[in-house]
Amino acid sequence: MITALWALGALALVFGAILGYAAIRFKVEADPLVDQIDDILPQTQCGQCGYPGCRPYAEAIAGGDIITKCPPGGEATIKKLADLMGVSLDSLDQTQNKQEKRVAYIREEDCIGCTKCIQACPVDAIVGASKQMHTILSNECTGCDLCVEPCPVNCIEMRPVQTTAERWKWDLQSIPVHVVEVK
């Protein structure tokens, strides 16, 4: 009986020592959780989640906020966040389908050069100065919609991104078939 206790005790000590040593010696530095979450978020900085940017939302998620608040991220982002945070997907509400990507467009004939939209853009995707023409850099625009509201002359509209052959998603159903009369 005593021998058994001694044996088990000794085993526990030995394995505990090994594990402790391994925990220190082979420790892997992992990204802080907030950074990992921020990497998953789409960086639109649109504020639709209620936080002023993606980083604050990442911090909120790390603090326990729900992960379904990001519409631009869509389902893919929610899935990845669920994987990362260990949250079960079934318990979440179904969010709306990911909308097509849109970018802002300024109708230049209506622009009055007030710079209100420039101040609103979180990624500085609008080029212009006071009393000068404003224009959107389509490549930098994240489609966050924040510039549409401040424009006093309503000259900004959101346009869907054109599909090109390189970015085609191989959706065979969407190819328009041309019906011709047989010659």
């Binding site: 065979l172 190819i175 078939v177 041309h178 019906v179 011709v180 047989v182």
Partner: peptide
């Protein structure tokens, strides 16, 4: 005549 679309 309408054309059939198929994947290769």
């Amino acid at each position: 005549m309408s054309f059939r679309i198929a994947a290769s």
